[in-house]
Amino acid sequence: MLEPVALKDFFIVFFSGAMVIITGALYALLFAWSRLWKKPWLMNAAYGAYMLLVISVLILGQTAHLNGFWCWLVFFMLTGYLLAPHGIWKLCVGTHMQHKQDAPIMVTETSNSEYSKEGVS
């Protein structure tokens, strides 16, 4: 059930493991900036970071022998990291919706005084 990592793959496993979290955070960061500042090119960069995350997860999966049952872990990591920022963003918008003072000022390029729902959707 469990096949330990080969000696030659030690560094790759540690490095790819670290990159999973770092690229995951980078994806989340760029995703949020893109939505906040309304910069579509940042969203492309976010998905670029996500692609690096996919590569990291796949390398980790290969070197750590995540076969059989462990394939589910790869699947959940890929979908979890992809969807979590979307979900959290929706929650952010939802929880701040009733508070005018929490209008994301920087996203509303047309007006600084009026709360624009478009800016946070």
């Binding site: 979290i21 995951g24 955070a25 994806y27 989340a28 960061l29 995703f31 949020a32 900036w33 906040l36 500042w37 979890g80 990291y81 979590a84 920022p85 979900g87 959290i88 963003w89 929650l91 952010c92 701040h96 929490d102 209008a103 994301p104 000022i105 920087m106 996203v107």
Partner: peptide, 17 residues
């Protein structure tokens, strides 16, 4: 770590608004 990564979004949102 998923919650930690997801919280990045919240931090960015709050610092932006």
């Amino acid at each position: 770590p998923v919650p930690l990564v997801a919280m990045v979004v919240h931090a960015v949102y709050d610092s932006g608004v």
